[in-house]
């Protein structure tokens, strides 16, 4: 079937398929949409170029930034006064936490987690920047929100161990029962951890 496509479309299809979440069928559908609506193609092209020229990694936290100073919208927000630093794996994790509107502190994007099997080492993560920020930016708490995969757990432990002598509080996101769900649907591993890390009730 590939042989039926003109060479430029075949190469576009191949490029699209390399994107996360896009298989052969979605690639063809995108191509079809681009060809049917040239203005759509134009606007996507324009946006891509804009992103390529102006989006940078925030020089402080590692989130996406576009301003001249190289800081992102969160780092320049004067209203975020809570002296808490939340460490996440990827920029998209910041969006997830922000959606909850529950956090008013600062973020630090690690850019991954320790993963010797895939060759990810300490030097591949933004750890030096993290130590530097914790030393100089006056936080009272560092909260680790890296996830619960074995790699994430290990990275959490590694960071906490490194900060053992730091006077502030080191915490991690709790694991537990999703809000609004019944116990019988929660997997036993999550249940056993929720039980181990149970909370006192304040009345």
């Amino acid at each position: 079937m590939e042989a039926l496509l003109p060479p430029s479309l075949a190469s576009l299809k191949e490029a699209l398929e390399r994107l996360p979440g896009i298989g052969p069928r979605s690639a063809l559908r995108l191509i079809q949409a681009f060809l049917r609506k040239p203005e759509l193609l134009q606007s996507v092209l324009g946006s891509l170029q804009q992103v390529q020229t102006s989006v940078r990694m925030c020089r402080r936290c590692g989130f996406w930034a576009e301003s001249d100073g190289g800081l992102c919208i969160i780092c320049t927000d004067a209203g975020r006064e809570e002296p808490v630093l939340c460490v996440v794996k990827e920029p998209s994790d910041i969006l997830a936490i922000e959606r909850s509107q529950a956090f008013r502190g600062q973020y630090h994007v690690l850019g991954g987690v320790l993963d010797p099997l895939s060759g990810v080492q300490e030097k591949d993560l933004r750890l030096k920047e993290l130590w530097q920020r914790i030393r100089t930016e006056g936080y009272e708490e560092v909260v680790l929100a890296l996830g619960t995969s074995p790699e994430a757990e290990t990275t959490t432990y590694y960071i906490a161990r490194h900060l053992a002598d730091w006077p502030g509080r080191i915490t991690r996101f709790a694991s537990g029962i999703p809000v609004g769900s019944d116990l019988e649907y929660v997997d036993p591993l999550t249940l056993s951890r929720s039980l181990r890390e149970r909370q006192p009730i304040h009345v």
């Binding site: 320790l114 300490e122 757990e153 290990t154 432990y157 590694y158 161990r161």
Partner: peptide, 10 residues
């Protein structure tokens, strides 16, 4: 040792 410690924790 710090890295090994971290994997050993799990």
């Amino acid at each position: 040792p710090a890295l090994l410690d971290s994997w050993e924790a799990l």
